[in-house]
Computed example of a mutant assay.
Amino acid sequence: MQNADPISNPPPLVEQAFTRLRADVLAGAFAAGAKLKLDELQGLYGYSSSPLREALSRLSQEGLVRADERRGFRVAPISAEDLADITHMRVMLDVPALRESIAHGDDAWEATVIAAFHRLEKVESRLSDGPVVLDEEWSGLHRAFHLALVEACPSERQRAWGASLFDQAERYRRYSARFRRSARRKSNEHRKLMDAALRRDADTACALLEEHILSTQRNVLAALRHAEGAER
């Protein structure tokens, strides 16, 4: 008797719950600091408490959710201090990872970077110059491009930790995007970053990546100040 085709089988309930809950946390469907009650999540997603609890535990390991033994789970807060810590660690990990990737990357790595940029550019070319909402498609392609740049870095842990920090910064990118006035500027930054990496100009590429990361921090801080001013 043949086994069922694994491609046709849906992922386990824990993976389904994790994927859906994670996407909603990143998209800002839950307010920063909001309590994630199991009974409410059961009604919202239709899963039992067991897969949801496991999904929340995994999200807490990623830094997207905070766990408290007495108070349950909450969405991680959004703050200038938290963003500064994420930014600092991204510069520490991602910039050296890019330098290593440029040093070790082969023709296949170059092709992966070019393809990832092309897909991202096609989506970014459709963004307006006014405030935008960064959807799942853009977020996935943006992540794929940045991970492709460092894919040839020999350290698996460095790449994994960098990817986790990239995801923690995603909520902040989406938060600030609605206040952004030039969506295409980021596309130009990505092209310059790719070009420098492909011509093996590590110093320029690393400087561009660091500025790219820091510009995200500046954009978010401006959005936070805007939001604070609107509340007064």
Rank of each mutant, 00 (worst) to 15 (best):
Q2W: 08
A4P: 11
D5S: 04
L13S: 15
T19A: 11
R20G: 04
L21E: 00
D24L: 02
G33W: 01
G33L: 04
G33S: 02
A34N: 08
K35V: 14
L36M: 10
D39P: 06
S50I: 11
L52E: 02
E54T: 15
A55V: 04
S57L: 06
R58F: 02
R58V: 04
S60I: 07
S60Y: 11
S60G: 15
L64G: 00
V65H: 01
R66M: 05
D68P: 05
A76S: 08
I78C: 10
A80M: 07
A80T: 14
E81S: 07
A84H: 10
A84S: 14
T87Y: 04
H88G: 07
M89K: 07
M89V: 02
R90A: 11
D94W: 07
D94Y: 02
V95K: 01
A97W: 00
L98S: 01
S101C: 00
I102T: 08
I102L: 09
D106C: 13
D106N: 14
T112R: 13
I114E: 11
I114A: 04
A115F: 09
A116Q: 07
H118F: 08
E121R: 13
S125I: 09
R126A: 15
R126Q: 15
S128G: 15
G130M: 05
L141T: 09
H142V: 06
H142T: 09
L147Y: 07
L147N: 09
P154E: 07
S155W: 04
S164Q: 15
A169K: 07
R171K: 11
R171P: 08
Y172H: 03
R173Q: 10
R174A: 01
Y175L: 15
S176L: 04
S176V: 08
R180F: 12
S182D: 15
K186F: 08
S187P: 08
N188H: 06
K192E: 15
K192A: 15
M194P: 04
M194W: 03
D195S: 10
A197I: 06
R199V: 15
A207Y: 01
I213N: 05
T216R: 08
T216N: 10
N219Y: 14
A222K: 11
A222E: 14
L224P: 04
R225I: 06
E228T: 11
A230W: 12
A230F: 05
R232G: 11
